[in-house]
Design a binder for these strands. Sequence first.
RNA 1: CGGGGUGUAGCUCAGCCUGGUAGAGCACUUGCUUCGGGAGCAAGGGGCCGGAGGUUCAAAUCCUCUCACCCCGACCA
Length: 573
Amino acid sequence: MRTSKFLLSTVRETPAEAETISHKLMLRAGMIRKLAAGVYNWLPLGLRTLRKVESIVRQEMNRAGAQEVLMPAVQPAELWQESGRWDQYGPELLRIKDRHQRDFCFGPTHEEIITDLIRREIKSYRQLPANFYQIQMKFRDEIRPRFGVMRAREFLMKDAYSFHANEASLMETYQTMYDTYSRIFARVGLEFRAVDADTGAIGGRASHEFHVLAESGEDAIALCNTCRYAANVELAPALPPMGKRDPATKSMQTVDTPNAKTIEEVSKFLKVDPAQTVKTLLVKGTGGAVALVVRGDHELNEVKAAKLPQVMKPLEFLTPGEVTLAAGCEPGSIGPVGLKITVIADESAARLSDFVCGANVNGKHLINVNWGRDLPEPMAADLRKVVEGDPCPDGGERNCAGKLTIRRGIEVGHIFQLGTKYSEAMNATCLDETGKSVIMPMGCYGIGVSRIVAAAIEQNHDDNGIVWPDAIAPFHVALVPIGYHKSAAVRETMDKLYADLTAAGLDVLLDDRDERPGVMFADMDLVGIPHRLVLGDKGLAKGMAEYKGRRDKAPRDIPLAEVVTQLQGMVKL
RNA sequence: CGGGGUGUAGCUCAGCCUGGUAGAGCACUUGCUUCGGGAGCAAGGGGCCGGAGGUUCAAAUCCUCUCACCCCGACCA
């Protein structure tokens, strides 16, 4: 491709709307343009990278034996009503009506559609297992789209759905997909981790998320520093503290804590360590309100809390008015002592002695509180988010002596063992060896294709712009001639290099604009082309082209005759 | 959904408080010079000041309504 025939729409100034680096760079490099909140045009440059990611995903899915299909983006409400999700899904589901006032939605995912398709097409266990995938635009009406294509409303996703005659077969395909995903992200050239995950709204049992590690990631993930344990913080178990609770040493007292409401304010006012305090959160329960108690320096893990049988799902906090009714005070002074509702304490909070908590009277707290003496022993459960330095749970046991590190990740893939959630609701069955009708267990496997593009930039950029991994670079090589329009020799040599490199299977961008070199260098760096060749009359006289890798500090000369072979060796496809 | 903010040239923004009929930089067009890290000079083109209504002799500017976009919050006890 020549820049004179390519929409290289770079901009120097950073658009006001962009916050994250990838969003800024995608706009500046001319990869995307916003059409509406969370809805983007892909320009030629951006589309080249998107297609390369897509192609890697497609190749690896095919290699794993999955079959590509294409399902409708617009889906009739009937199927969603059949699975029960028409009512379960909130405003995130974009509902639309056709001219006959029939209900449709723009598909946020395709479990219903594939289950409907397959229950009609597959009749026998002999046709199983089977795995179908598509690469398609999805629409989720996010509360707050942000970060460009990272959290967009319309986005390109690869979703796959597998069907099985039995659970063992599902496990096998699940493992194949786990391996396939690892291959995909390794090929794209990203630093990633597979982590244990919560299944969330999709439902089902086991699930793993694939995260690209990046500071700007929206998810916190817990990694062990010694073993291979990795989990989303939402899921990572906090092991109960070792040893026994210290004995009580002082008697309980009420103290005035005017205007001190948050843990920070209270611990500062009373000059105690936040770890010696507890916070009490009131949530809606299956039988009235429930008090959840965590240590002051810990945070409630809402996913864990919502899994308690006593707690309503999804987790909902009491409104300030309801808090006053249940505790007799405003939020900021609540404590577990004397509460008439169910109290559940986090393991760490239950291990405290002589601790500080709200007094259930506005502006007052209790000090030197002790479980079993000043209030009943609490029901203890794992309620908190793990923190940096917590012991590695390694499957819930203390088999590993390692400690957890918390890192940020961008979720780019998620695989689930769905089980029979959808096949049962929609009666997707087949006949087994004995001629008996069985419900097909299912798996589902998603990859955020457009999000990978943004995640790759978050992980690969510098002050001058994007630094693409070779595998997803829009072009592998940038040819920058000095004096293309002045020197016939430069022009002829560059044109020949362009032809030879292209013939060697590389994607080449020849900058044949009549621009000053500085402009061309800046543009090639900004759009992130990983390999650059510069050639002018001076180099030509020496028979040398100047090569610079995008990450290299300084350029080096390569004999013109060796350029093609050397570059072929350097570009990692 | 709650709170805050912004809509003026293709982009980034000034002008608004204190009404008087439209600006800068970048980008774009033309010419000359320049030519290895986003050039200089000169001349140009380009805006129903988001939309509707109101106040006024007069509205980008004041008032009301509306739409769009951005940010923050929805773990707070």
